[in-house]
Design a protein around this nucleic acid. Structure first.
Lengths: 221, 221
DNA sequence: ATGTCAGGTCTTGTATACAGTCTCCTAAAC
DNA sequence: GTTTAGGAGACTGTATACAAGACCTGACAT
C-alpha cells in the first residue's frame, strides 16, 4: 500500500516489486552477493511474500539474482572476468541488431532513436548526468527494437541492463563522449548501410570495453 | 562433514512444474496460443496455484509464455516471420559461441561434446529418432558451455529451446544428416581454429534455416 | 580440542482464503 | 434489430497460514 507507488505504468504490485528490486540491484542499493530474504523485502516494500517471490524468479531468469532451492536468493555476483566476457556477447548481439536495423530502416524507430539522442544531448548540456546511463541503455535498446526482431529485443533487454549494472561502478557510464559514437551509429542505420552500422556498433562496444578495462585495471570483481 | 548433498535434479515442486510446463510447450502438448489457467494447471499437476504461478513467470521471462496482467497467460505464438527471425539471432550467438569454444579448447568440454556426438550416432543407428531433437539441443548448448562465457550460456539455453520448439513442427528436427555438420563443427573447435569454427556454426544454422524454409513454404505461422 | 547431537530459530516451500477485475450472458430500453 | 445496464461466473492478484528444511548454538562425549 504505502510501499512503492511508482508510476501508473504498472498495474500489479508484482510488476512494481520486480521493477523496484531490479532498480535497487542496478543502482547498487542492493549489493552483489547480498542475501534477498523474502520476509524482509516484503516488509520493506509493504507487500506480502508472494509478489516478492515471483519477482525473484523473474530476476533470476534474467541473471540478476542467483537462487538456490531451499537456500534462498542472493544478488548475483559478477566477477571481473564475467564482466569482461559480457562485452563479447554484446558485440555479437548488438552488431547484429545494428545490421538488421540498417536493413529495415523503419521511420518510426529512427524517429525514436533520434529523440533519445536529443534527450541525451540536453541531459549532457544541462549536466543531468545521472540520466545518461538510462538514456544510454535506452539508445542501445532502441537499436534492438529498430531491428524488428522480436526475440532479439527480448534477449537484449536484460543484456543491456546487465551492461548498465556492470558500468554503474565506473565513471564511464556518464561519459558524454560516447554519444558521438551513438550519433554516428544512428547515421549509419538511417543511411541503411548494413556493414557500416554493424562495424560501428561493434566498435562502440569495443571502445566501451577498453574504457571498462582501463578503469578496472588491477581490480577484483 | 556438513553434507553437500547436491545432485538431486529437482528439490522443489516449483522446478518440476516449470520443467513439465516447458516440456508440454516444447512438445506441442500445450499448443501455441492456448490459455494457461492457473487453477486447471494446478489441479492437473496435483499442486497448488503458487508453484504454477512462479513457473509461468519464469517461462514468460524465457519467452515461451505471454502473460498479460489481470488477463492471464497463454502459450506464446510464434509467427512464421518470428520463427525465421530467430535464425539470425542464432547465427550471431552460436557463431560467437563456436569461436570462443575454439579459443578455449577445454578438454572437459570437448569430452562432453564428443560424448553427445556418440550418443547421437547411437540414437540414429538404433532408430531412436525421438531423442535426436534433445541431443541436438544438447550439442549446441554444449558448444555454448565450451565457450566458457557464463552470460552466453545463460542466454543460449532458452534460445536453443525456442529453436527446438520451432523445429518440433518439422521433420528436419529428426534428420540424421545434420550430425555430419555437428561433427565437423566439433573438429574445428577441437582443432582450435576460431574462424573455421565460427564459419561452420553459422553455416550449420544457415542450413537449418534453409530446411526450415523449405518445409514451411507457403505456410502461415 | 574435535566431533556430534539436540534443540530452537530463521527462512523457504506450499497450500488455502479472500478480494478485485474481467468476461460473457441476459434482459430491458430505444 | 441494436445497444446498453447489470449481474453471475471465472480467473487473477494478494495476503495469510502452515509445513519442512537449513543454520546456529551450546552441551556433552570422546
Amino acid at each position: 500500500m504505502s510501499g512503492i507507488t511508482l508510476g501508473a505504468a504498472h498495474q500489479t504490485l508484482r510488476d512494481e516489486v520486480t521493477a523496484e528490486l531490479r532498480r535497487r540491484i542496478l543502482t547498487g542499493e542492493l549489493r552483489q552477493g547480498e542475501r534477498l530474504v523474502e520476509d524482509r523485502l516484503a516488509a520493506a516494500l509493504g507487500v506480502s511474500r508472494n509478489p516478492v517471490r515471483e519477482s525473484i524468479r523473474v530476476l533470476a531468469a534474467e541473471g540478476f539474482v542467483q537462487a538456490v532451492p531451499r537456500l534462498g536468493a542472493t544478488v548475483a555476483v559478477l566477477s571481473q572476468e564475467e564482466a569482461e566476457e559480457l562485452f563479447d556477447v554484446r558485440m555479437a548481439v548488438e552488431g547484429l541488431a545494428a545490421r538488421l536495423a540498417a536493413r529495415k530502416r523503419g521511420a518510426a524507430s529512427a524517429e525514436r532513436l533520434h529523440r533519445v539522442l536529443e534527450q541525451a544531448r540536453e541531459a549532457v548540456a544541462e549536466g543531468r548526468l545521472d540520466q545518461v546511463a538510462d538514456l544510454n541503455t535506452a539508445f542501445h535498446l532502441g537499436v534492438g527494437e529498430a531491428a524488428g526482431n522480436s526475440y532479439l529485443t527480448l534477449m537484449m533487454k536484460p543484456m543491456l541492463q546487465r551492461a548498465q549494472w556492470i558500468f554503474s561502478r565506473t565513471a564511464a557510464a556518464r561519459a558524454p563522449h560516447s554519444w558521438t559514437e551513438h550519433l554516428s551509429l544512428y547515421e549509419a542505420i538511417a543511411a541503411g548501410d548494413e556493414d557500416d552500422a554493424q562495424a560501428r556498433a561493434v566498435a562502440h562496444v569495443a571502445a566501451a570495453r577498453r574504457s571498462f578495462l582501463a578503469e578496472t585495471a588491477g581490480t577484483d570483481g
